[in-house]
Simulated assay, not measured.
Amino acid sequence: MSDEIAPVQLIDDYKSAKDPARVAKDLAAGTAGGIAQVLVGQPFDTTKVRLQTSSTPTSAVEVVKNLVSKEGLRGFYKGTLTPLIGVGACVSCQFGVNEAMKRFFRGDNPNPSGLLSLPQYYTCGFVGGIANAFLASPIEHVRIRLQTQTGSGAAVEFSGPLDCIKKLVKGKALMRGLTPTLLREAHGCGTYFLTYEALVSNQVQKGVSRSDIPAWKLCCYGALSGTALWLMVYPLDVIKSIMQTDKISQQVHGKTTLGVTRNVYAKYGWKAFFKGFGPTMMRAAPANAATFATFELAMRTLG
């Protein structure tokens, strides 16, 4: 980086750190990114969950065909209210904690570029993932229950998100799947933010201010980050989904992460841990491109 660029970047970082409303702005931008992620990714997510939890061999094409014929296009957005609120909160938590950790590592004496080391970026995301897991686990549990139920009227188990929450709380099952969620979120978010920040840092080191990186590049970086995340943690997500769609009162597949893993492997083999992988990877690029681009543009707007 040239001498002319570095001081400007340093001043921008100090202003950001000293802004009393910085945390609120980080959370607001994260919420915007989360909403964008849900709107873009929900159809893919519904297909993924149906595949992961299917008791019979099927394909993404068959799932989509059956869903459209039996439930219509609206079926792809079943349970969307919960993720719109919940994923907004989750992404807000992820990004908010990640930004706070970046400021923590910079301290009062950041280097001239304001950049961190790659292990530090991973740690920022790792901590953000752990914090987010306690929100994500119950929110995703409710969403998955709603996504996988079929039928209408009196035939459905849950009449909506609130009814689902009440029944899960009554069955002492709302936080089921927390352990695989913690493992997925910690390593997944560490990889997620490391990938993104490494790509952004590459631009900053070339003399480009973060606020001047074009939207199309932010989309590409977000797409690559989302893809890297799911490549690292996908089997954990399958285990979590199986645990969260098991019977509320009687867990057929096992009561622990290890127990479920053993039972699923014994019954279906290793391929079971990659059910729904195709739709997930198809979703990862556009959903996370929208997430990061929206987050960065919201941060620029908020200042």
Rank of each mutant, 00 (worst) to 15 (best):
Q120S: 03
N263V: 02
L10S: 03
G160C: 04
A32D: 05
F193R: 01
F126Y: 07
V238H: 09
Y268Q: 09
L297M: 10
Q203Y: 01
V23G: 09
L297I: 06
A6F: 01
Y196I: 06
K267S: 14
A284W: 02
G303T: 06
K170G: 14
T245C: 05
S54H: 14
V40L: 11
F104L: 10
A154G: 07
C164S: 10
F105M: 10
L302S: 08
G278W: 14
T294E: 09
K240P: 08
G41Y: 05
E4D: 01
T123K: 03
Y77D: 13
G190F: 01
L224K: 15
R103H: 07
L229W: 02
N98H: 04
G125V: 02
Y14E: 05
G303R: 03
L183R: 09
D3Y: 08
Q251H: 14
F277H: 09
Y234A: 04
M243F: 05
T227D: 06
Y268I: 00
R210P: 13
M282S: 11
T123A: 07
D26N: 02
G33Y: 02
G222I: 03
A28I: 08
V64W: 06
G114S: 06
I5C: 03
I139D: 01
V260S: 03
T82F: 06
A285G: 11
A89T: 07
A60S: 15
F105C: 15
C189M: 10
F277D: 14
M243E: 12
S2L: 03
G160A: 08
M1F: 00
A186L: 02
A36M: 14
V40C: 05
M175V: 01
G278V: 15
G96L: 07
K247D: 15
G188Q: 02
